[in-house]
Each structure stands twice: as C-alpha cells, then as structure tokens.
Design a protein around this nucleic acid. Structure first.
Length: 511
RNA sequence: GCCCCGGUGGUGUAGCCCGGUCAAGCAUACGAGCCUCUCGAGCUCGCGACGUGGGUUCAAAUCCCGCCCGGGGCACCA
C-alpha cells in the first residue's frame, strides 16, 4: 500500500489528500534549543574561554568555545577570552594569536580579553592570604617524597612550619632567592582524603624560564587550579562550561578557603571525531615524521586544517548546538558535521563542471555556445561556454556508456555514442531533455588542470596511522574555475563540494 | 590501588532529576520511491537502540544494589 502511494507524484498525493479533507501536517522546524543553565538570568551571565596558548587551536576547542558563545547569546551575557598562560615552559607567543584568529574565524565575539600572567601580583596577594590563614605552607620535599607521602597519606614535617616561617620563605621565593625545585607552596588539604587530589596539592612553584609576555619578571607561578579559581572570581564568571578532564573538588576547596562566591560548573566530555584525535601527543609525531603536511594539513583537527577542508565556521557552531554536550564518551562521525555543512553550503556554492580522468570525445558537427547558471535554483550568475567538436567526459562514464546509446551532455544537448576508444566519437541527437537519459558533465574549450585532494581519517580503528588517509584525483575543470577565489567553496557537479586551496589544487570536503 | 563521571539503534543525541502518556522522539547514515539537466538539495516511506544480573513497584530506559565495559583524576600540566 505504502509503495503504491509512494509511486504517485507528491503533487498528486496532496491533491488526493485535500480531496479527502486531510490537511498536510505541519512539522515544527524549530532549531534545537540548548538546555537552560542553572541559576542563569538574562543579561547576568558571565562565561569564559580559557585556552592555554601552548598549541594550535583545534575543533575540540572550537566546539567548547561555541558552547560558551551560544550561551552568551542565549542569555545576552558577557564572555571572556582568558589565556591560561601560567606555565612559561609551555606557553608560546604564536599560539595566542593562533587562538585569536581561530576564534574570530568562528565568528565568536567576546567582550573582554586578558592573560592570566598579567594578574600575577593579584594572584600573589591571594597566595599570601592562603599562607596567612594557614591554608598553605612552603614545602621543600623532593618530588619523589611528595608523591610517596601523598600515596601513603603521610604528612611531611614542613606542614607544621609556623606561619612566620612560611611567609618568610614565600617572600624569598618571590624575590628569586631560590632555584627551581627547592620550594613549592602547597595547599593544606587533607592527607588522608580518599580523593588524592586533595592531599596537599601544589599551588605555586618556581619556574625559571622567560615568559613570552612577562619575560623574566616572575619566577613563582601558580598552578592551574589555583590561578583558575582566582581568575573566575575576579572575572565575575557565573558559569563554567568546560570539558571534564578537570576535577571540581580541589577548586571548590580553594574557593571556600578564600571565601569566594559559588560558581556553577557544567562539565562535558571532550569533543573529537572518528579517526581524528585532538591530542598533541598523537598529532605531533605525524607532523614530525612528515606523515602530514603540517599542523594545517586538511586531515588535521586544527582549526586551520578543518578550514582548509571546507568546513564553514557556522557549521561548527550549528553542529555544536545540535549535538549539545554530554558527559558520556563519544566520537562524532564526520558525516554528522558534513551534513550540517552541506545544508549551509548548498544554497551558496557555485556549480561547476569537473571531469576526473578525462576521456576525449568528438561530437561531429557540434558548434554551440551555451550559458549555464552557476546554481540550479539560486541566482548566482552564469558563465558562457563555447563548444567545438572536441570535449571531455569522465572516463568512468565513457566506459559504462554503450555504443549506440544516447546520453546527455548536461546543459548542452543529447548525443549518441558512435565509437569508443582513443578516437571516441558521437553525433548530435537532439535537445529534448528527458528524465531517463543519463546526464554527464563535460569540459570543452580551454580546460584547467585540477588536482583534488581528498582528506580522510588519520587513524584506523586500531589507532595506527592510515597510509591512505590522503587520496588524490586529477582531472580537468572548465575555464570558469580560474575565476574562483582562493578559499572559495563550490561544488563540482556529480563529484562533491570542494574548496580552492591554491591555484590548481582543491580540497574535497564531502559529497 | 583509591576517587569521580558515563554506558539509549551504525553514528550523534532526546527522554532519566519528578516511574505510567516510551510497543522510546529527533538528526545522520543506510535502503526504497517521488522530484530534479548533479552521484547535491528537497519530499515520502522504511530500517534499526534502553550494557548486564538482581531488587523495589500494579507499573522501570527512568529509583536501589552488584557486575561488566568506557573515560577522567590522584603532576612543581592545563
């Protein structure tokens, strides 16, 4: 029954339906809304993007930032861009700019920007307060000893030092009297706590390496958890939306010790795509061994990589909104992102002809000039093509077309194949357009040689690098191709969406 | 070892807090058809899931316990 109805054209179906008084059920199209944030009030929400400028921004950052941005919009709140640059050993100047670029590419508008390293004096003030209130102490245990004691739940002797002594050492640390590894400041937690991260964690350590922003001004640096709590307090952050590789217990404790306000913490698991991990640990070897072209290789999850791959920034934001966030482990299939990207691209991408593995075809007596629209149903302009007897069609089509068969050269005319092979010939067979005839794209005139790079997943299921992660297709495109802008995303008809990477190279995005 | 957090179709999610309306919604993928001068878009239909074992209850995807599996933390990294 269903089959029978389906075989009737839609218009006729609707006709029949209205005849029987059945109206079309309107589907509510509403875009998916993000869940409400606890305790969020319009206009009073403050969020933050906290990148560590120690590596390239990747899709995981992009999505986590998007969530924050979406909530900023939802509640008309404020958004900070805050560089978590408290480890001079990891931070590098160029990455600050890389993040700024990535964020602006995404179209994320933030209200304030700062580096945590600019707030050192303030952070020191809170460190001092921790010591004065007995919540922190200076410790000179070796790393091994700290570890051992923490594991065994034993308090070291430094824990019993007087406030005066702690304060003296603290001041001396600040005045650069000590070298690395001599002293650290630890939070007085609970050496018996079942959660080991509360067994007197370190909150300040000495690092004698020049910082890209503050240079050699400071040597005592706060650890992430400490700096973060302070920054969230002074930035007036109301909601922390971050991935779940962070534990809240420690930060909550510090917040309590310093009598800071409560902050809503929402955690979600890391965003990553199938076969394309975001961890530097896995990516760096690929770059170093030359298995990929660089950090901006279109197979890479870096912002630069996915941009080259033809993903629109809006697609990332919209995709993020669709999948939302969860604490459950997941690995997105690229096809999910592609689907969103395709929807955005379809109405704006120009349609061009590309012939992979071209096969020469002579059409007897053909001489024609056609003007073809650049989009089937949007007005994106058109291009004019002069056709002579000689043109090219894909080898794949040439092979499957039988001699004597009539097929259509898209937007041009019908032809009948007379012979195959090197001197393949065809003859004109009318202009009538019918649904059944096979349609083939073609290239004539002055073809442009084009190389299409097809990026795939970097790793297979077992986690080893895929040698075939990058494929290549060569062919010719119509002349109009040369007038595309670098970076422009368009569609090669019957082939897929691509982005102009460089003069004669395009990167395949998806079908 | 200890401590957190998860486990809904191939993939991603909704539902779980407040048990029934869930013989489980949506998207994507896949299959079929309609439409279309694209293998794109649009439209219609189909396919397919509550980790596992107990318990509570008239009733469990939803609450409780055990187990299994996955992720994260226990850094002088963030």
């Amino acid at each position: 029954m269903v089959e029978r109805i389906n075989s009737i054209p839609v218009e006729r179906q609707l006709e029949l339906l209205s005849k029987y008084g059945i109206s079309e059920k309107k589907r509510e199209e509403g875009e998916k809304e993000l869940p409400e944030l606890p305790g969020a009030e319009r206009g009073r929400v403050v969020l933050r993007l906290p990148p560590e400028p120690s590596g390239y921004m990747h899709i995981g950052h992009a999505m986590a930032f998007s969530i924050n941005y979406l909530y900023k919009q939802k509640y008309e709140g404020k958004l900070w861009l805050r560089f978590e640059d408290t480890n001079p050993r990891k931070v590098e100047k160029r990455y600050y700019e890389n993040f700024r670029r990535g964020i602006s590419w995404l179209g994320i508008e933030y209200d304030f920007e700062k580096n945590v390293s600019e707030d050192m004096e303030l952070i020191y003030e809170f460190g001092r307060r921790m010591i004065l209130s007995g919540n922190a102490y200076a410790c000179s245990c070796s790393l091994e000893r700290v570890k051992k004691f923490r594991f065994e739940g034993i308090e070291c002797e430094h824990r019993a030092n007087s406030t005066e002594k702690n304060l003296r050492i603290w001041e001396e640390m600040l005045s650069k009297k000590y070298g690395e590894g001599t002293y650290v400041i630890r939070m007085r937690g609970d050496m018996k706590n079942q959660d080991y991260s509360l067994r007197d964690p370190n909150i300040f350590r000495i690092i004698q390496k020049a910082h890209p922003v503050t240079l050699t001004k400071y040597v005592v640096w706060p650890t992430y958890d400490f700096a973060n709590v302070i920054e969230d307090e002074i930035c007036n952050v109301t909601h922390i939306l971050r991935s779940s590789e962070f534990h809240t217990a420690l930060q909550d404790t510090i917040r309590r010790m310093l009598s800071f306000r409560k902050v809503h913490v929402i955690q979600f698991s890391r965003f990553s795509f199938k076969g394309t991990p975001v961890q530097k640990r896995l990516l760096r070897p690929l770059v170093e061994k030359g298995l990929v072209q660089g950090w901006d290789d279109p197979r890479m999850p870096t912002v630069e990589g996915i941009r080259r791959r033809g993903i629109l920034p809006q697609a990332i934001i919209r995709f993020t909104k669709e999948v939302g966030y969860t604490k459950s482990e997941h690995e997105y299939d690229w096809s999910l992102l592609f689907a969103v990207n395709r929807k955005l691209l379809d109405p704006i991408a120009k349609r061009l002809f590309f012939v992979p593995s071209p096969s020469r075809l002579r059409v007897r007596g053909l001489k024609k000039s056609v003007e073809i629209r650049l989009h089937p149903d949007r007005d994106l302009g058109s291009r004019k093509i002069e056709v002579d007897e000689e043109l090219f069609i894909p080898a794949e089509d040439m092979e499957s077309i039988e001699v004597g068969e009539v097929f259509r050269l898209m937007e041009l005319c019908n032809v009948r194949l007379l012979s195959k092979g090197r001197d393949a010939e065809a003859e004109y067979a009318g202009d009538e357009l019918t649904q059944e005839t096979r349609k083939v794209q073609w290239v004539a005139g002055k073809p442009v040689e084009v190389r299409v790079i097809i990026p795939g997943e970097l790793f297979d299921e077992k986690g080893s690098f895929r040698e075939d992660s990058l494929k290549e297709v060569n062919g010719i495109a119509e002349e109009y191709f040369s007038s595309l802008q670098e970076g422009e995303i368009f569609q090669f008809v019957r082939f897929g969406f691509c982005r102009v990477d460089s003069r004669n190279t395009v990167v395949f995005a998806h079908r």
